[in-house]
Design a protein around this nucleic acid. Structure first.
Lengths: 126, 126
DNA sequence: GTAAGTAGGTACTAAAAAGTGCCTATCCGA
DNA sequence: TCGGATAGGCACTTTTTAGTACCTACTTAC
């Protein structure tokens, strides 16, 4: 595996970029979750992509995967201490992003621009 | 144009994500640049992709495009005030990313993992 | 004994992002 | 008058990322 970065930001985007990772990290930021809980929290994601993203986050040591040896299987994911160091960045990206959405909505009142969910994102408890 | 976000972070990634935008923003963060200066600063990017990324940043009001009506043409790009509000986030992503690269290098001393350039990125002058 | 719930694998397809190659127009200097 | 420098357009291909559909194996409850 060969990784050559021009600037540090690229290495960070490597970890938190992609369509689903921010959302996964947001949910795990509130506490450990089982696979099924994550899947229900993010209904639009497919099992395949969820597993794939979780593997990548695990390889990057952002999250921990706990397998309970029992039947039916039980797997719990949670942020590692290293993963928690992303929190400040994610909170700030969240704040900036929410302001951008408001800006877009103000500039294009006729277009469909929305922020779903309870808007709490990373902004609670930090 | 329809944009539906689950959380704010996605809106931020919409703006700074992608393969070249962080690098473009890094260079423009040091001052206004002409198209050719940018292209020489980022030799691996092609003219087509550079133009395309600049257009998107312009549409997002992150940068300004000044056309000087003369021959040969002269076009200067620079961060808008709004664009400058991204700076703190970019600086933190830069710091986190540089630490991650060191971490990767320590964990995989046999693999090719590098941070090119003068490593100054966003870390100078902020 | 059959269905539901558990976590996940695999082959294939579709969509998004990035890259290639070649084109325009104008002026200046050699 | 020919080549280089300016900024960028357009058609097409490749690569990357995400999505679809269908499969395993085990246990409990009905």
């Amino acid at each position: 595996m060969e990784k050559i970065y021009q600037i540090g930001v690229e290495a960070t985007l490597d970890v938190i970029g992609g369509k689903w990772k921010p959302l996964i990290l947001c949910h795990l930021g509130k506490g450990p979750l089982r696979t099924g809980q994550l899947r229900r929290a993010i209904p639009q994601i497919t099992q395949k992509v969820l597993t794939q993203q979780l593997r990548e986050l695990e390889d990057d040591q952002i999250i921990d995967r706990h397998v309970f040896q029992q039947v039916p299987p039980k797997v719990v994911y949670q942020l590692t201490d290293y993963g928690k160091t992303l929190n400040q960045i994610l909170v700030e990206m969240s704040i900036w992003g929410e302001q951008r959405i408001k800006r877009l909505q103000a500039a294009h009142p006729d277009e469909k621009i929305e922020l779903l969910g309870d808007h709490q994102g990373y902004l609670e408890g930090h």
